[in-house]
């Protein structure tokens, strides 16, 4: 059984402009030791879906299920959730300052985190553990820096300190929401290396939310592509890049400057994402899709398997037989899938 199994999650917010349907029927699962990459443009519901699982969306209307080791996280009370957060599910956010308290020493915050969940540990023991963790994530001279305040750390060090904190209780699952988006590529490489090494060491499952397909290619085992609050496509890493089915996945990849080598002009997706208050009927991607058909504008395509691969799902009316799909690609886009290495 999967470590975390989310089923048909819906989240909406009431605002002065109307009801924002931020997450509309999202299902996914993560296994121990695996990394699930969630990608999609901003506002597609990536953060709301994971924050809801952690009990962090206030004032939202929520339905669905999120089974974590036999318990439905969506029905747990605040007290029980607090015990799970940190101890069993660690979180890393885009902005480390939002979870490191500015007035307390970095080390002290890790010590508190540990002692909250492990009452038997002495302060001295917890502090030694904090130094060990900071050391582990590559903070130079950790025994001294443990007494620094967050503002004395650089952005990259804060992000690593937050990883140390998230890992301090050996969680089974780590949710990292754009953990490297605010960082330089060199620091991003450091942070991703730390996450990967920790995962190998402890078999932690990771959900990595990002809009950077390069990061996904680097660390994910499976990928979920989201658009307008729903899952468009879900597949293993190589299928996502080399044998994707959904036109939105195709569009995301084609927009990249690095995609397909040198090219004079980039190929953007035209238009912009829909409002989540007034969603178009039918497929949410229809207004921007190069393949749109009459049916797309009225009927919502279900998330269904592609070809014979039970783990490859796509929510699109195009033929789910990959040969037929690729023929269409040739006709509409004018070129086949990118150079496809042997699977």
């Amino acid at each position: 059984m999967a470590l975390l199994e989310v089923d048909d999650l819906h989240v909406s917010f009431r605002t002065s402009d109307g009801i924002v349907q931020a997450v509309r029927g999202v299902s996914f699962h993560v296994d121990a030791g695996q990394t699930l990459g969630i990608v999609g443009e901003s506002g597609s519901g990536k953060s709301v879906s994971t924050q809801t699982i952690m009990g962090l969306t206030r004032g939202a209307r929520i339905s669905g299920q999120a089974m974590f080791e036999g318990r439905d996280l969506l029905t747990l009370g605040q007290g029980e959730m607090r015990k799970i957060r940190g101890a069993e599910i660690g979180m890393i956010f885009q902005d480390p300052l939002s979870s490191l308290h500015p007035y307390y020493k970095v080390g002290w915050q890790i010590v508190e985190m540990i002692r909250q969940h492990d009452h038997d540990m002495s302060k001295a023991q917890a502090k030694a553990r904090a130094v060990e963790l900071l050391n582990l994530v590559g903070i130079p001279q950790a025994d001294r820096r443990v007494d620094d305040y967050p503002h004395q750390f650089s952005g990259g060090m804060r992000q690593r300190a937050m990883i140390a904190m998230a890992m301090s209780l050996n969680p089974k699952l780590l949710i990292a929401d754009e953990p490297t988006t605010a960082l330089d590529v060199t620091v991003q490489a450091q942070v991703l290396a730390v996450i990967k090494t920790l995962q190998e060491e402890f078999g932690t499952a990771v959900i990595l939310i990002t809009h950077d397909l390069g990061v996904v290619a680097d660390v994910a085992d499976n990928v979920q592509v989201m658009y307008a609050g729903a899952v468009m496509e879900k597949a293993d890493l190589r299928t996502t890049f080399f044998a994707h089915h959904h036109p939105y996945t195709e569009g995301l990849l084609q927009s990249l400057p690095a995609y397909g080598g040198e090219r004079e002009r980039l190929r953007p997706i035209h238009g912009q994402p829909p409002s989540l208050i007034n969603l178009p009927p039918g497929c949410p991607f229809a207004p921007r899709c190069a393949y749109v058909m009459d049916r797309c504008r009225t009927e919502v395509p279900p998330l269904a398997t592609v070809g014979t691969d039970a783990t490859h799902l796509s929510a699109c009316w195009l033929p789910h037989d990959m040969a037929a799909r690729n023929e269409l690609r040739l006709k509409v886009v004018g070129e086949p899938l990118p150079a496809q290495a042997e699977a």
Partner: peptide, 27 residues
């Protein structure tokens, strides 16, 4: 060299192969 090697490439086959130069410390 380090900067270029750190850029994530959106290609799973190349991502694994590259030797990434991880710089120590911060600026």
């Amino acid at each position: 060299d380090a900067l270029l090697s750190a850029v994530p490439v959106p290609d799973p086959d190349k991502a694994g192969q590259r030797e990434r130069i991880i710089l120590a410390g911060d600026v």
